[in-house]
Design a protein around this nucleic acid. Structure first.
Lengths: 226, 226
DNA sequence: TTATGATTCAAACGAACGTATGTATTAAAA
DNA sequence: TTTTAATACATACGTTCGTTTGAATCATAA
């Protein structure tokens, strides 16, 4: 363990940037290592394989991010002993740590956010299986908290609402900006994270709070009520 | 023009399925053509290149889908001569044609829906530039209609709200199901499109209607309140 | 029939990929 | 110093990729 810190770190940082910009499959190790100014074989030496590098790049920030989510959730629960945590606080605790990575140290986290958006929709296929456990605890705890503050929603409706929540966040993080096709509109320049977080919180909170659509008589469930 | 119809069609159908399942970059033409039971060179003969095939696969369904969106919008506008179209109707007209492809003929559209979710986040890089024009008209007209029925929202807030809307839809279509990590919850089996559309409409309508967070002068916000 | 144009096919091309190998280089332990 | 383990390096291996080629096949019209 001599100067490996420099090499390993430089590989991770460069990979984060390239993976976010071009995706996993379209980023070759040759391009990566040349931009990182390390030898081509360094990736396989330090990480074992390209897949392992992808996992390392993701885990480096995903694990602390989900840890921060849980930390904030516990703090909120401690502040509301016994009572459900208010919905806005729950939403903010979930999306905050994700969006705040965008203004991380030296703009490094910004690329990772876009990368995370890819993580679950892009291959390699078995990567998702290694990513899922990193989310398990967070999803599990937040789901309970959301259910506590939204008792009028059926389990199935809550499932879909949280699905929508994650989807909106993931798309925001992916940086895919379909809306930009229309030139007009007043886009704020530097993408102020606090402002976006607030906008997203308001939007999602309202959506989560919406009255559950009553299942029609068209032969489907009406599981609601407790 | 003899039996090309069979070959060309079989390539498109197989490509749609494989692209949706594995992504563009991870689907090789050799795997594609063998599953389609056509010769390897058939793709380049009929489409010119792999990139052109990708574009053809997308355009085959995207163009009619966006046409249907505009058709429904015009129908709504005709029914509310002069008055803004109700928000729920606008949302349904936008997300309906997308989600309804999921129960298209012979489950073919179902794969395409997941594919469209990829379209904007996955490579190749210049594909997005060829995809954007297909969205321009739809985004343009719907944006005006949303602005008419949500006059209290600033242009910037509306931009972000629509961004959230598209994101939620894209994630739903991508089939990336992070929530499934938690075993519990009552997931309905066959993913009834009508039910999902209704759930999504309710969720998005409530989010779009939320009161705009007032932007503080500078520094800190936390303005909620009235 | 023959002629013609469209399509299919097997085979190969060069390029780029992820990975493995063997050797230098480095830095600290002995 | 010598030894030793860790790291960096240049290079090559084997595979797979998208694409191209030229001949074979087919359908149709003269």
């Amino acid at each position: 363990m001599t100067a490996n810190q420099g090499t390993k770190q430089r590989i991770l940082d460069t990979a984060e940037r390239l993976f976010a910009d071009q995706g996993f499959g379209n980023t070759s190790l040759r391009c990566l290592t040349s931009q990182a100014a390390v030898n081509l074989a360094a990736v396989n030496y330090h990480f074992g394989s390209k897949d392992a590098l992808i996992e390392a790049v993701i885990a480096r920030r995903l694990v602390p991010m989900n840890g921060e989510r849980l930390r904030r959730l516990r703090a909120l629960q401690g502040r509301h002993r016994g009572h459900p945590v208010p919905l806005e606080s729950l939403v903010a605790a979930f999306i905050g740590p994700a969006l705040e990575l965008s203004q991380d140290t030296s703009r490094a986290g910004s690329q990772f956010i876009r990368l995370l958006g890819r993580g679950f929709v892009e291959s390699p296929p078995q990567l998702q299986d290694r990513l899922r456990p990193m989310y398990r605890e967070v999803i599990d705890h937040f789901k309970r908290a959301f259910a506590a503050v939204l008792p009028e929603l059926s389990a199935e409706e809550l499932y879909w609402r949280l699905h929508f929540l994650v989807g909106t966040l993931a798309y925001c993080m992916s940086g895919a900006d379909m809306m930009r096709v229309v030139a007009s509109s007043g886009m704020s320049a530097p993408l102020d994270i606090e402002v976006v977080t607030q906008r997203l919180t308001v939007f999602l909170t309202a959506g989560l709070r919406a009255r559950e659509p009553v299942a029609e008589a068209n032969g489907f469930k009406r599981t609601a009520r407790a």
